[in-house]
Design a protein around this nucleic acid. Structure first.
Length: 636
DNA sequence: ATAGGGTTAG
C-alpha cells in the first residue's frame, strides 16, 4: 500500500514537472503580456523581477564572442594560432588567451599546453591569465607538479601569481588526492600572506575536506570563512550538503540546507536540489524526492537539468521501475536534453535487474544507431543481467566482446562473471577467470572477495572458503560483517556449527557489529541442528541488542520451529509478525502448508496465516490447499 | 573585459 501511495505521489510530481517545464519555456514569451497589466501573485512578481534582472544581466553577458573564443575544433584552433604568430605586429596577449581558454572549454588540455609553450617560443609576452590557464591545464591532466613548475616560471618571468593561481593549484592537489599537501598549501597562503583566500579558495579546500570524509572540519571551515569576512555562497553550502548526502546523513544535509536558505538567505540552485534528490534516491525515500521536485518546480528560478534527470533515471532503474525511468527520459527529451550513454546504461541496467534480457539486449544493440558507444559500465550491466538469469554462456560471449571492442574489462566485469560462474557451479572456470584477472594486474576488491567466498560456500567448498579467509588473515578485507555472515551461513549449512559459533564469537571480538542478516543465518544454523532453545535465546538477545527485527529473521526462526516439528511458539511468532506487518516468504509458507495439510495446525490459526500471505504467493496457497480449507482462511 | 570552485554510471 505504501509503495502505491508514494508511486502515485511521484507520478503526480512528474506530471506537474512536465507542466512546469512547459510553463518555464513559455515564461519569456508570455512576459510582455504579463507586464501589460495582468495580475501577478506575489510569487510570480518576484520571479518576474528576477527574470527581468537576469535579462538585463544577460544583455551584458551576450556580448558577441571574438573569433578567438569561437573556435570549434582542434584543427581550427591550431590553424588560427599559426596565422596569429605570423602577424606583424603580434596580436595582443588577450587574443592568445581567448584562444587558449576556448581550448580548455573543449577539454583539450594537452593541446592547450602545447600552444602555451609555442607562445614562449615565438616570444608572445605571457601574462598572469595565460599562466593561470596553463596551470589549470596541468592540474586537469593530473600533472599538478608541472603546475607548480609553472608557478616557478611566474617568479622568474615577473608574472605575479594571484589568488586564482593558488586556488587552481589547490584544486589540482585535491584532484590528485594529495589532501595533506593541499592543507599545507592552504595554511601557507594565509601564514605567508601569498594571497588572501577568497570564496573560491575556501570552497576548493572545503571540497577537499569533504572528499576525505571530513564533513565536520569542512563545516568548521565554512564557519571560519564567515568569521574571516568571506561570506559562504551557494557553492560552499552545496559542496557540504552533497557530501553529507553521499554519506547518507540526510538530517544534517537538510539542517545545513535550512540554515543556508532561512538564516543566510542564500538561494539554493539546481545543483543544491540535485544533491538532495540524489541522497534521497539512494535511500529510496521517494515521497521526499517527489516533495523536493515539487518544491523545485514551484520556484520559477530553478528547473531540473540534465544531471537531475539522469539521477532520477538511474534511481528508478535500480529499483527496477523502468517504466518510470522511461517517462523521465521522455520529459528530458521534451525539454531538449539529449540522453547520453550514461542515461541508456542505466536503462540497460534496469532491464537486466528485472531479468528482461531481450529488452536489455535490444536496447544495447540499438545504442550504436543512436550514435552512442557502449562503455565498460554498459557492458557490466548487461553481463550482470545474463549472469543473474543463469545465461552464463551469453555472458561469457559478451565478456569477450569487451576486449574485441577495444575496451578493457574492469574489476566489476570480472567480479560479475565470477559470480555468474559460481552460480551455475562452474568453480573451475571461476578459478581460471580469477587467475586471468590477476594476470591483467587487477586487484580483487572487497566485492570480488565476497563473491568468491560466497561462491565457494554455495558449492560445498566451505573448507576452501575458510582457508582463503585464514590466508587473508588480519587484512581489511576480513574486517567486514558481510564476510563473516557469508562464512557463518556456509559453515551452518554444512553442519559445521562449531565453526559458525566460533566465527560469530570472533566478529564481536574484532569490534564488528552483527547485522540482521548475521543473526538470521546464525539462528537458522542453530535451528538446523535442532537447537531451538539456543536459537530462541539469540533471537531475544538480538531484539535487545538494538538490532531491529525484520521479516527475514521471523521467517527463518519460524522455519526452524516447523522443520523441527515444534509448534509451541509458532502462533506467538505469527502474531508478532502480524503486529509488525511482516509477511511470510515462499519457503516458510510451504512448510506451514505441510503442517496445515497434516492437520497439525489449529484451525484458529488459519485466519492469521491468511493475513500474512503476500499477494504474490496467493496462487501458491490456493493450489496447495484444498478449496474448503482455502475458503476458511479467507472468509473467517 | 581573456584565468579559479559545487550535481550523473556496479
Amino acid at each position: 500500500m505504501m509503495m502505491i501511495r508514494t508511486n502515485s505521489l511521484l507520478h503526480h510530481a512528474f506530471f506537474k514537472l512536465t507542466g512546469i517545464l512547459i510553463t518555464n519555456s513559455l515564461t519569456t514569451t508570455t512576459l510582455s503580456s504579463s507586464v501589460l497589466g495582468l495580475e501577478f501573485s506575489p510569487h510570480s512578481t518576484s520571479s518576474l523581477a528576477s527574470l527581468l534582472h537576469s535579462t538585463s544581466f544577460s544583455n551584458n553577458g551576450d556580448r558577441p564572442l571574438s573569433r578567438y573564443q569561437k573556435v570549434t575544433s582542434l584543427d581550427h584552433a591550431f590553424n588560427l594560432f599559426d596565422e596569429m604568430i605570423l602577424r606583424k605586429p603580434l596580436p595582443s596577449v588577450i587574443k592568445f588567451n581567448q584562444l587558449l581558454s576556448a581550448l580548455t572549454k573543449m577539454n583539450h588540455f594537452s593541446s592547450c599546453l602545447h600552444l602555451f609553450k609555442q607562445m614562449y617560443v615565438v616570444r608572445v609576452p605571457v601574462d598572469a591569465y595565460s599562466m593561470n590557464i596553463a596551470i589549470k591545464c596541468c592540474c586537469q591532466i593530473s600533472r599538478t607538479n608541472d603546475g607548480f613548475a609553472l608557478l616557478g616560471c611566474c617568479f622568474r618571468r615577473a608574472v605575479v601569481p594571484n589568488v586564482i593561481t593558488f586556488s587552481t593549484l589547490l584544486d589540482g592537489l585535491i584532484r590528485e588526492d594529495r589532501i595533506l599537501e593541499a592543507e599545507r598549501l592552504f595554511k601557507k597562503l594565509i601564514k605567508h600572506r601569498l594571497c588572501e583566500p577568497n570564496v573560491v579558495t575556501y570552497n576548493t579546500m572545503i571540497k577537499g575536506l569533504c572528499k576525505f570524509g571530513n564533513n565536520d572540519i569542512a563545516i568548521g571551515l565554512l564557519r571560519l570563512m564567515d568569521e574571516r569576512g568571506c561570506r559562504p555562497d551557494v557553492v560552499a553550502y552545496s559542496t557540504i550538503i552533497d557530501s553529507l548526502c553521499k554519506d547518507k546523513m540526510m538530517d544534517d544535509a537538510f539542517n545545513l540546507f535550512k540554515e543556508m536558505v532561512f538564516h543566510k538567505a542564500i538561494q539554493p540552485n539546481v545543483i543544491t536540489y540535485t544533491s538532495l534528490i540524489h541522497g534521497l534516491c539512494n535511500l529510496c525515500r521517494w515521497d521526499e524526492v517527489a516533495k523536493l521536485l515539487k518544491e523545485m518546480e514551484e520556484d520559477a528560478r530553478i528547473s531540473p537539468n540534465f544531471q537531475t534527470f539522469s539521477i532520477l533515471v538511474d534511481a528508478f532503474c535500480k529499483e527496477g521501475r523502468v517504466d518510470e525511468a522511461e517517462a523521465v527520459i521522455d520529459i528530458m527529451v521534451e525539454r531538449g536534453e539529449v540522453p547520453n550513454i550514461v542515461t541508456y546504461s542505466s536503462l540497460v541496467d534496469g532491464y537486466s535487474l528485472r531479468g528482461e534480457m531481450t529488452k536489455a539486449r535490444t536496447l544495447f544493440d540499438s545504442l550504436t544507431s543512436k550514435g552512442l558507444v557502449p562503455n565498460v559500465v554498459t557492458y557490466n550491466s548487461l553481463l550482470n543481467g545474463y549472469c543473474k538469469s543463469f545465461k552464463v554462456e551469453e555472458a561469457m560471449h559478451l565478456f569477450h566482446d569487451i576486449t574485441r571492442k577495444g575496451l578493457k574489462p574492469d574489476i566489476v566485469s570480472y567480479s560479475t562473471m565470477l559470480q555468474g560462474l559460481f552460480r551455475v557451479g562452474r568453480c573451475g572456470a571461476a578459478r581460471k577467470l580469477f587467475n586471468e584477472m590477476r594476470s591483467q594486474g587487477l586487484i580483487p576488491d572487497e566485492c570480488t572477495y565476497r563473491i568468491i567466498l560466497d561462491g565457494l560456500c554455495n558449492n560445498h567448498k566451505v573448507e576452501e572458503a575458510l582457508s582463503l579467509f585464514h590466508l587473508v588473515g588480519d587484512s581489511k578485507l576480513n574486517s567486514d560483517i558481510v564476510v563473516y555472515t557469508i562464512l557463518i551461513e556456509g559453515a551452518g549449512k554444512c553442519g559445521k556449527l562449531d565453526i559458525a559459533k566460533t566465527l560469530f564469537h570472533d566478529l564481536t571480538v574484532k569490534g564488528l557489529q552483527p547485522d540482521v542478516r548475521t543473526y538470521a543465518v546464525m539462528i537458522s544454523g542453530l535451528c538446523r541442528e535442532g537447537l531451538l532453545t539456543e536459537a530462541k535465546h539469540l533471537f531475544c538477545k538480538r531484539d535487545e541488542s538494538g538490532c531491529p527485527p525484520n521479516s527475514v529473521t521471523y521467517n527463518v526462526f519460524l522455519q526452524g520451529y516447523l522443520k523441527n516439528q515444534n509448534c509451541d511458539d509458532v502462533e506467538m511468532l505469527l502474531q508478532e509478525m502480524d503486529r509488525r506487518s511482516y509477511s511470510l516468504d515462499a519457503s516458510t509458507l510451504s512448510l506451514l502448508i505441510d503442517q496445515i495439510s497434516a492437520g497439525s495446525v489449529d484451525r484458529s490459526m488459519l485466519k492469521l496465516i491468511g493475513k500474512l500471505v503476500p499477494k504474490e504467493l496467493m496462487d501458491t496457497l490456493e493450489s496447495c490447499l484444498d478449496y474448503n480449507l482455502f475458503k476458511q482462511m479467507w472468509e473467517a
